[in-house]
Amino acid sequence: MRNKTFHSLLYFLAFWLFVGLSFILTNINTLDSSMHTKLFEAMPHSGVTHEVTAVLLNFRALDTLLEVGVILLSLIAIHALEPNFRYTPLSFENTITNTFVAILFPLIALYAFYILYSGSYQSGGAFSASALLAGGIIILRLVKPRSFFVPKELILRFLYVSGLFYFVCVGMISLFFGSFLEYRDYIASFYIISIESVLMLSLGAILSAYFINAVQRVKP
C-alpha cells in the first residue's frame, strides 16, 4: 500500500519534471555561434557532401571510433554473462518462413548496401546499415537455426574487431601525414567509404551476436 502511494508520487513528480523540461527546451533562445559558418567553410575538404556524415567520419571521427569501441566492449561484457543464459533453441522452420527468408534476406542485404553508400549525400551510413544487416542475420538465424552456417569462433572474433582495428589503422597511417585521423579532399572520400564498409560488416556481426549470444544457444 505504502509502496503504491510512493509510486504514484514518483509518477506525479516525473510528469511535472517532464512538463517543466519541455517548457524550458522549447523556449531556448539559441546564441549565435560561429559553428555553422565554420562547418560550411570546411565542408568542401571533408570528402563527402552530407553534413552528418562529414561530422561523424571526418570532423569528429574520434567520437565515432570510440563509439565503435563501446559496441565491441559491450559484446565482451555480454560474453561475461553468457554462461548464465540457458534458453531452448527456437525454430520456426516450415515452407512459408523458408521461402519468405530466401526472398527477404538478399533484399535486406542489398538495402543495407544502398543505405551505406547513400550516406555520402543523404542521411544514412554505417550504423544504420549495420543495424539492418544485423536484423537480416537475426531473422535468418531464427528461422533456420540448424542450417545456419557458423564460422569458427576465432574467425568470428576477427570479424568483430575488424571495424575498430581498421579505424585505428587509418588513424595510425594518418599520423605520418598530420594529426590522428586527419584526411582531406580526395583521399578523405576513399577513407570514409572504406571505413564505413568495414564498419557495416563488423558492426552487423557484433549486433547480431548480441542477440544470438543472449537468446539462442544451439549446438547442431
Partner: peptide, 20 residues
C-alpha cells in the same frame, strides 16, 4: 604531441589483441 593519440591507440589495440 603524438603522445595523446598514442594513449588512445595503445588501449584500443591491446584490447583487440586480448580479445582475439
Amino acid at each position: 604531441n603524438n603522445l595523446i593519440p598514442a594513449l588512445i591507440i595503445t588501449p584500443a589495440l591491446f584490447a583487440i589483441l586480448g580479445f582475439l
